[in-house]
Structures are given as structure tokens and as C-alpha cells.
Design a protein around this nucleic acid. Structure first.
Length: 993
RNA sequence: GCGGGUGUGGCGAAAUUGGCAGACGCAUCAGACUUAGGAUCUGACGCCGCAAGGUAUGUAGGUUCGACUCCUAUCACCCGCACCA
């Protein structure tokens, strides 16, 4: 009886499905544990070996927790709305729902092969109306809420209306993220006098999901707006198309109101430092002051210039002001003689795209002809315009302190502006010094004060004079929430007379209608705007008659911002998730996924959770307790070398562009007469060389060519297979270092069979891609070695959190281990070899040591050393010829999370009923554990072996005598006798008690 | 430029608290069994050296009886952010 993994895995997968062993109940006396994977976007390419890495890790942990007696929720679903399906629809005319469903089927088949313990009864699909009904519902909750800064939480907008009616907005100023109104104040009387439109416009300034005009990232190629995190280096994340700034009416999420709580929450959750850092940077909180400077310009009475600075202490070092080219004050303050240069400069800036600005950081600028007055020493400070000041951050204007800021310094040097030194010897006129520890000089009333302490003083003074105030600033902007696309959730909003009216909850879901074409609608609207009947519905409630539907759709991150809640109560038709269910499952205990969502999904879902918590729908305000980022599995390309006698290629270049080898083909051909002869006959179009067959010589004519890695196994290319399957190689000749392959035969001195071409491997650590032929489909590996081998091998590759190149070379070793395990139970000839004899101490030691090790490794996510521990255990049990049920049974239980199929099979072979999934994880028995013999270091007065007169050929006994006679050792032992004495490297002596 | 991370054999990697560096696996080599081996088993395997021994965790220092581990400096690579005042 041999290890027939195909049969076993099929059998148990069917059995588990049929018996519903992965069904999870919301009512259980057991403690709960929630293990979540980032659900995949079902792309057409299917899964590759990188995907399952995280899934396997989470699956192992989920199964482990189950053995440990937890009620484990481990669901899976699909992030099904998104751009690629729509692009595919545009190109091929296939409805995104159709292609998405096909892809999901494909994903599901692949996932099932690997044997995950997902409760598929809880599957969610964000494009399903039963799901997005609740995405729309949550949107309405956000729309109907505002952030109360006094209570620091989201509250109902009706409450805000009540406040306005009573006291106006004195205590609730308009959030500064507003795009249309700034600092507008009104009283309760004003409010009462406002008409409906005005009131709604004002409320829109407060809503957590709101619509406003603003500069957005417009991607022409994709025909839509993108969120900041979807734009990378001025091009779109998806597709790499150019992105420009455009003013458009857009929906936003007022995530900026949550900035502080998003920061504070990071302290309570287990994310990696890198991840926390990324989110912290993205939020970009800084403390400083806003200062108003009186402006002195040709035209008097233009008011003041407001700047934001984190260094108010440097106010006496201000040598010039810089305002953004978009700053509204420019028109007013520019002097007549500077008008032309300023206009020219602004034209120049407009001609530069964001990309250009970021790529080449030139020092550019233009003087306005106006001056600002330093409030403390009345100095006149020239006001400049420069593109290095961003309109969108702070007030779009800065006070430049060249002695303390590098950019200001370079600007001053470039334009020859004289620099005031306020930090004495800390400044050397060669570069700026941003220190906070200098004692201030040339600083009026601040002279002699350390900068760090001066900050408070200045802010106090500014506030006292009424020309400035303390100010906290954030880099984070509100998140753009609408897309001019088809394949997303429609907004449950109807516009009438310029007012956005939410649909009644009873009308949800607002179903995504069918469209004929997926192309953009008129005026930057989405495809839905082409549907006149849908966009101008006739069946609206009387009050909204004549209204139009919002034709934008929600972005991809809408559905993924709350899916972890839906898994808890996936079939609830009355609520997005019952409070009972969310209270039971609460936070995700373990969330596994890639780092690519650091500032997107992970931030948005945290915000949604906080809003839902504030509004009382759930009882926790951080969605994830612990996040583990799995590393990327990168590809490894394999090459052969094409000989191009007709083209003079020059030096052979490897993918990394380093000249690799120079070869003289002619010398080779004169030597290998057969090849030359065959070449001369022109029987084949091309010759390919293995790496080591390329002769070392002078010249050229070889170019590296990617070969599909599926033909490569353990560094060897299966040439025959490849020549058979790939039509372009049908007539090719493959030259190997000891012969060549042509037309189905090997030629050499003798006919060789099963010969393999030896290969070189290069370019590890690159992204997997179709063009490099380096993608690996997990299905093929599962077919070849079985799911258990595949699972264990992926874990064995290295730490889960580390990126690593994919390489199948080692998979044989893991497969061997499983076969060896099998042989502890069954012998090929003798059949059953396991027995019910009593285990001896040596065997129990192996068992309990392994239990302890697996427990520790699994708990700390060290699955690679866990797999090693199993290998060691099986090796040792084989050596001990231990086939005892007493030992093997427990070994199977702890192996279950790693290799569930073989464990289940053997467990049944041992005569057990039910499923091993519900077995209890055994406790390691202390008495069998190798006593944790602590090595106590004894430095014998720092003396080495030689100094203690221990001869090199001294026997163990002689050594011990000498050591035990030593005063230091005697003292330390306190009369006890040591277990063991160990030398280390002649120098140190360990005494073990 | 700023922030985070990683450097250990031919390769993937272990070393959990500062205690015999390289576990486990791959590849390679030698051998056994076999009609056969792409099955299985045994042994060797960082580097130098016939050996004894020496030497070795990116580099240079430091702390320590003892350092892959802690400290200082430095180099290389990877990831993230990037004119954020």
C-alpha cells in the first residue's frame, strides 16, 4: 500500500464537503477566533503560487486554533467589483458579471484543490446585490452622519440640524477639508432664514460621505477619477496611465475627521512597525501654527497672508515668503512691474505636469513685488511664488527660513536673497541646519532661548496679538469616493434642484442596470449616464419627481471596507450584520494579506469600522486585532540561449544587462561536426544552447530567451517535453554540453534517452508575469505532488512575512517526508506495519518534543521551522523503527493543520471515527521533554584551558577534576554536583546542572 | 532626502533568553540494494589544510569569560514615502 495522495485528497475533500465539517456556527460555548484573509480580486489570470502563501498560513492557524478548542471563523469571498473586469468588457464586449463569475469559478476550483477549511456557506461577493445592498446602506449611514468634534465621534445629521436650529454653527465650524466654504459662520437666526438649498449645501459640508467640487486625480485613459492611494508617481496604479488634476464634482469620504482616531488606534493594534509607519506618514500629522502677516503691496489694503509653519520659533529668521502658484492672493498683490514675469511664471508652472514636477526638482520662482511685514520686528519680507509650495497643504503659503530649512536655503542661494542667521554657530552658510536645540540669536525677544522652548512662547504671543494660532495639520486628504465607471455600486442618491436626496432604505438595493456599452457618458459622467431611462426614472416618490439619479458608482474599496462584518452574518436580509453576530465574533483576531493595501483598504476599513461603531451598529472600533503581511513570492526566470548566425547580436546580455559571455560559435562548430552538418542542411530554423554548452571563447551571436518554467525541474529543462508541446520549438535543435536534441532524438557519441538540458537560472526576485513565462499554477503542483506537499512546501520556503523567489527545487524533499511518514504506517510489501505496542521513553521523547516545538512554532508563525520539526520527528521515528499507534496518532493530530488530507486518512486507518479536525491538540508531557538543561557559564577567572593547565589530550575525567577543584566553580556549585561539563573553544567552560 | 527592513555555505534557510554557528531541506559527491531507478537506504558536504589545526555570520571597531544575537561607525541590497513648510 503506497501513498496515493491523489486518491486520498479527493476522497477527503469530498467527504469534508459532504459532511459540512467546515460549517461554523455563531452559537458555541467555545471561545471564538476569527482568522481572515484579504479576499482576492478574481482576475482572469487565476491564482499563482504567490496567492496561496497567505491562505495556507491562515489555514494552518485556523486549523490549529480549532484543535486547540476554539470556534474558528475562517471565511473567504471575492472583491468582485473593479476596473479590470470593466476594461475586459470594453475590449471584448463580455459583461463584467459574466467574466467575473467565470473567474470566480476558476479561483474556487483552484482553492478547493489545496484543501482550505473555508466555510463556503459564508462566501461573500461584493458585486452581489444582496451584498451591495448593504454597502449602499452603509453609505447612506455615512451620508446621514457628521463628525461631532466635541464628542469626537460620528453622529446623526438630524442632531446637527437640531444644533443649528438652536445655536447656529458657533460650536461646530465647517470642517476645514471643505472645498467650497471656509470659515463660514452662521447663527440660529441665519439658519432659519436659509432656504432649503442653502441648508442642504451647508449640511453637505459636514456629512461623512459628501459631494463637492474639488481637484481630483483624473485619469483620461481609464475615464475616471482615482483616490490618492491609487495614483503612484503621477500615473494610475492600474495600467500606469497618466493622471492629471481636474476640478470635478465628486463624492468624498470625510476620512480627515478620523485622522486622530486612526492614529491613536494604531497604538492598540498589532501591525508591523513598517505598516504603522506607512499609515502614520500617510496621515501626516504635524503640529505648528498659522500666522497672519500684514501685506504691503502697491495696491494698499489687500489684507494679510496666512502661512502654516511647524517652526514658529524661527520667525525672526524669515527672509522671504513663498506662496503656491495657485494662491488666490497673487492677483491682488503683484506689482505692476512684476505682472509680466509673474504671469509668465504661472504659465510655465501650468505647463508642467505633476510627473515632471516630481521627476526634476528645479529651483524656480518669481518675485511678486509685494512684501509681508514681520509682526515682531516690522521687517519687510519679499513675497515670492514658487512651485515647491503646494496649494493643497496648509495654507498654500510658507514663511521661508533659509538658515533652518534646506529647500528655503537653496531657494535663497539661487535667487541671491540674503540669509539671516538666528542659530549662531549651528549655521555655517553652506547648508541649512534644521536643529531645534540651538540658542536663538538675532531673534528679538527670543534671544538666548533654546528653540525647542521658544515655540510655545511664540505661539502664545501670536495668540495674544490675535495674529496667529496653534494649528494641527494633516497630509491626508478626504478620500475620493466616486468613479465614472460602470462596474461598481450605484449611489442610492437622487439629485433634484441641485440637492442630493438619499433613497429610502426600503428601496435598496438600487440595482446596477444593464448597459449596452461600457464607454464613458457625456461630460465626464460614467456609463450609467447613457441610460436615459435609468438616470431619469419615472417611478420616483412624488417629492422627488423629475429628479435624476447619481450616475457615478462607488470605488473598489467600498465593498472591501466592511466585508469582514458580513462574514459574521452573511445571509441576514434585514441588517448588514446583526449586533449579536458582530458582538460574538467582534474583531478579526488575525488578518493576513499583502502590504499593498497599507494606505488604501486598511485605512478605509478602519474608518468605516469607527463610523459604524460611533453610530452604534457594532461594538468595536478597530476591525483587526493583529495583521500579518505575507511576503511576495517572486518569480525566477529560466533561460536558454538562441544562436543567431544571421544577426550579429553583439555581446550576450542577461536580463540584468550585464555582459555575460562572449563566445565563438565558429570554433564550436568546427569541433562539433554533426551540428554544423545539420545546420548546413537547414533542417531547423533555430538552435538553442544550454548555458553550460555555450563554449567559452571570443564572440557573440547568442541571445538569452525565456523558457516556460513548467518545463524546468531542479535546474533541468525537459527539452523533449518542451519541443513537443510548444510549436515554435518543434523543429528546433537544442545543444547540450554533451550532445544535442533534434526531431525527437538525442545525438551524441551514443544515443541518450531522458537526457536533460542543464540550465542556468537568473533574475530571481522579479514579479511573476506571463511574458517572462515564470508564473506557476498551484494546480499543476497539486496534481504532481498533492495538496499536502504543496502546502507544506510553501511554508517550508521560509518565513511567511518575507519575500522570496519561487523555486520548485526543494519540493521533492517535502514530498519525500510525507512518503516517509506513510511508511511508518504502511510498507509497500508488508502492508500494515503500525501496531499497538506500548511506546518506550525514547519514542515518547521524540513525540513530546515535537508537540512542544510545533505548538511554539505555530503560535509564533514560524511555519517553516514547524515543517522542519515534523521532518526531524519522522526521521527519528524511522531510525527508532517506531510504528506504534500511541505515538503516531498524536503526531497526526499536530500535523493536521499542515497536511490535513494525509492526517485524516491515516487517522482513519488507525481505526478512528469522525474527523481529525475535531481532535484535541495533545499536551506535551513535561517528563518526556529533554530537560531544559541550562548551560551556566563559568568563567574561571577568565582563564583559558591552557592557563588552567588542562592538557589538550586530557581525558574527560582529568578535566573535570581540575575544574571541580577550582575555587570559583566550587563556590558557584554550592556543593551540588554538575551534570555535564562542556568546553567551548578552549576558552570557556560550561557547567550544566 | 526621510522612514522601515534585510545581509549567515553552491541554494532556501535554522539558531526562541548572549552559550557547541550552519538544524531541516535542496543541489552535489561516494556507497548499498536493485533487471532498472526519476524508488529506498547509508555516508560526506562552509572555507584553508594530507593531518593536527586554523578560520568563518556584509565591513571596521567596542562591551563580555563568551556575540549571528547587544552597542558605535560604515557598506550593500530591498520596501515605503517624497518639495507636506
Amino acid at each position: 500500500m503506497e501513498y496515493n495522495f491523489r486518491e486520498i485528497e479527493k476522497k477527503w475533500q469530498d467527504d469534508w464537503t459532504q459532511k459540512g465539517v467546515y460549517h461554523v456556527n455563531n452559537n458555541s460555548p467555545k471561545p471564538k477566533y476569527y482568522v481572515l484573509d484579504m479576499f482576492p480580486y478574481p482576475s482572469g489570470a487565476g491564482l499563482h503560487v504567490g496567492h496561496p502563501l497567505g491562505y495556507i498560513a491562515s489555514d494552518i492557524f485556523a486549523r490549529y486554533k480549532r484543535l486547540k478548542g476554539f470556534n474558528v471563523l475562517h471565511p473567504m469571498g471575492y472583491d468582485a467589483f473593479g476596473l479590470p473586469a470593466e476594461q475586459y468588457a470594453i475590449e471584448h464586449g463580455i459583461h463584467p458579471a459574466v467574466s467575473t463569475d467565470q473567474n470566480i469559478k476558476n479561483f474556487r476550483a483552484q482553492l478547493d484543490k489545496i484543501g482550505f477549511c473555508f466555510d463556503w456557506g459564508r462566501e461573500v461577493k461584493t458585486s452581489d446585490q444582496k451584498y451591495y445592498k448593504w454597502t449602499q446602506w452603509i453609505f447612506l449611514q455615512l451620508f446621514n452622519s457628521f463628525y461631532n468634534r466635541l464628542t469626537q465621534k460620528a453622529e446623526s445629521i438630524t442632531r446637527l440640524i437640531g444644533i443649528f436650529e438652536k445655536e447656529g454653527n458657533a460650536n461646530h465650524p465647517i470642517p476645514n477639508s471643505s472645498f467650497t466654504v471656509r470659515d463660514a459662520r452662521f447663527t440660529c437666526h441665519d439658519w432659519k432664514s436659509f432656504n432649503e438649498k442653502t441648508r442642504q449645501d451647508i449640511l453637505m459640508e459636514y456629512r461623512l460621505a459628501y459631494c463637492g467640487y474639488g481637484e481630483v486625480n483624473w485619469c483620461e485613459a481609464l475615464g475616471t477619477v482615482l483616490a490618492n492611494d491609487e495614483v503612484i508617481n503621477g500615473v494610475s496604479e492600474r495600467g500606469g496611465y497618466p493622471v492629471v488634476k481636474k476640478k470635478l464634482r465628486q463624492w468624498y469620504l470625510r476620512i480627515t475627521e478620523y485622522a486622530d482616531r486612526l492614529l491613536e488606534g494604531l497604538e492598540r493594534i498589532e501591525f508591523s512597525e513598517a505598516m504603522k509607519e506607512m499609515q502614520t506618514n500617510w496621515i501626516g500629522k504635524s503640529f505648528g501654527a498659522e500666522i497672519d502677516f500684514e501685506v504691503k503691496s502697491q495696491e494698499p489694503g489687500v489684507g494679510s497672508l496666512r502661512v502654516y509653519t511647524t517652526r514658529p520659533d524661527t520667525i525672526f529668521g524669515v527672509d522671504f515668503m513663498v506662496i503656491a502658484p495657485e494662491h488666490e492672493l497673487i492677483q491682488k498683490i503683484t506689482s505692476t512691474e512684476q505682472k509680466k514675469p509673474v504671469e509668465d511664471y504661472i504659465t510655465y508652472v501650468k505647463s508642467r505636469s505633476d510627473r515632471e514636477r516630481q521627476a526634476e526638482k528645479k529651483i524656480t520662482g518669481c518675485f511678486t513685488g509685494a512684501y509681508a511685514i514681520n509682526p515682531f520686528d516690522q521687517r519687510e519680507i519679499p513675497i515670492w511664488i514658487s512651485e515647491y509650495v503646494l496649494a493643497g497643504y496648509g495654507t498654500g503659503a510658507i514663511m521661508a527660513v533659509p538658515c533652518g530649512d534646506e529647500r528655503d536655503f537653496k531657494f535663497a542661494k539661487h535667487f541671491n536673497i540674503s540669509i539671516t542667521n538666528i542659530i549662531g554657530k549651528h549655521y555655517n552658510d553652506e547648508e541649512a541646519n534644521p536643529t531645534k536645540d540651538a540658542v536663538l540669536e538675532n531673534s528679538g525677544f527670543l534671544n538666548g532661548i533654546v528653540m525647542r522652548d521658544a515655540m510655545e512662547l511664540v505661539i502664545g504671543k501670536l495668540e495674544e496679538l490675535g495674529i496667529g494660532k496653534r494649528k494641527v495639520n494633516y497630509k491626508m486628504r478626504d478620500a475620493a469616493f466616486s468613479r465614472q465607471r460602470y462596474w461598481g455600486e450605484p449611489f442610492p442618491i437622487v439629485w433634484k434642484d441641485g440637492i442630493a436626496y438619499p433613497l429610502d432604505e426600503k428601496e435598496l438595493p438600487l440595482v446596477l442596470p444593464e448597459v449596452e456599452k461600457y464607454g464613458p457618458g457625456p461630460d465626464g459622467e460614467g456609463p450609467l449616464a447613457n441610460l436615459k431611462d435609468w438616470a431619469n426614472p419615472i417611478d420616483l416618490p412624488p417629492a422627488l419627481a423629475g429628479g435624476q439619479r447619481e450616475t457615478n458608482t462607488m470605488p473598489g474599496y467600498a465593498g472591501s471596507s466592511w466585508y469582514f462584518l458580513r462574514y459574521m452574518d452573511p445571509h441576514n436580509e434585514n441588517e448588514f450584520c446583526s449586533r449579536k453576530a458582530s458582538d460574538y465574533w467582534a474583531q478579526v483576531d488575525l488578518y493576513i494579506g499583502g502590504t499593498e493595501h497599507a494606505v488604501g483598504h486598511l485605512l478605509y476599513s478602519r474608518m468605516w469600522t469607527k463610523a459604524l461603531y460611533d453610530l452604534g451598529f457594532i461594538g468595536h472600533d478597530e476591525p483587526y486585532k493583529k495583521l500579518v503581511n505575507q511576503g511576495m513570492i517572486t518569480g525566477v526566470s529560466e533561460f536558454i540561449y538562441r544562436y543567431n548566425p544571421s544577426e550579429n547580436i553583439g555581446t550576450v546580455h542577461m536580463a540584468n544587462e550585464i555582459p555575460y559571455k562572449k563566445i565563438d560559435i565558429s570554433s564550436l562548430l568546427s569541433k562539433e561536426k554533426n551540428i554544423a552538418a545539420i545546420m548546413a542542411q537547414g533542417l531547423f530554423p533555430e538552435i538553442y544552447f544550454s548555458h553550460d554548452a555555450i563554449p567559452k571563447g571570443e564572440v557573440i551571436n547568442f541571445s538569452p530567451l525565456h523558457v516556460n518554467i513548467k518545463y524546468v525541474d531542479a535546474n533541468k529543462l525537459d527539452v523533449e517535453e518542451m519541443a513537443l508541446k510548444e510549436s515554435k520549438f518543434h523543429k528546433a535543435c537544442f545543444v547540450c554540453n554533451d550532445g544535442f536534441y533534434l526531431n525527437g532524438k538525442w545525438y551524441n557519441n551514443e544515443l541518450k534517452e531522458n537526457s536533460k538540458l542543464i540550465f542556468t537560472t537568473t533574475s530571481a526576485g522579479e514579479k511573476m508575469s506571463k511574458s517572462k513565462l515564470n508564473t506557476q499554477n498551484p494546480n499543476e503542483l497539486c496534481d504532481k505532488y498533492g495538496a499536502d506537499t504543496f502546502r507544506m512546501y510553501e511554508m517550508f520556503l521560509g518565513p511567511v512575512e518575507q519575500s522570496k523567489p519561487w523555486d520548485t527545487k526543494g519540493i521533492e524533499g517535502v514530498h519525500r517526508f510525507l512518503k516517509k511518514l506513510w511508511r511508518l504506517f504502511f510498507d509497500e510489501l508488508k502492508g500494515k506495519v503500525w501496531n499497538e505496542e506500548k511506546a518506550n521513553d525514547a519514542e515518547l521523547k521524540v513525540l513530546h518534543k515535537t508537540i512542544k516545538k510545533i505548538e511554539e512554532d505555530t503560535e509564533r508563525f514560524s511555519f517553516n521551522t514547524g515543517v522542519s520539526a515534523f521532518m526531524i520527528a519522522v526521521n527519528e521515528l524511522s531510525d527508532l523503527k517506531c510504528h506504534k499507534k500511541e505515538v503516531l496518532e498524536k503526531l497526526l493530530i499536530i500535523l493536521t493543520p499542515y497536511a490535513p488530507h494525509i492526517s485524516e486518512e491515516l487517522w482513519h486507518q488507525l481505526g478512528n471515527e469522525g474527523t481529525i479536525l475535531d481532535a484535541a491538540f495533545p499536551k506535551p508531557e513535561e517528563k518526556y521533554l529533554v530537560e531544559s538543561s541550562k548551560n551556566y557559564p563559568v568563567a574561571i577567572n577568565g582563564k583559558t584551558r591552557a592557563e588552567l593547565n588542562i592538557a589538550l589530550d586530557a581525558t574527560q575525567q582529568q578535566v573535570e577534576e581540575i575544574i571541580l577543584a577550582n575555587e570559583t566553580v566550587k563556590k558557584w556549585l554550592e556543593g551540588k554536583s554538575p551534570k555535564k561539563i562542556i568546553y567551548v573553544k578552549n576558552k570557556m567552560i560550561n557547567v550544566v546542572i
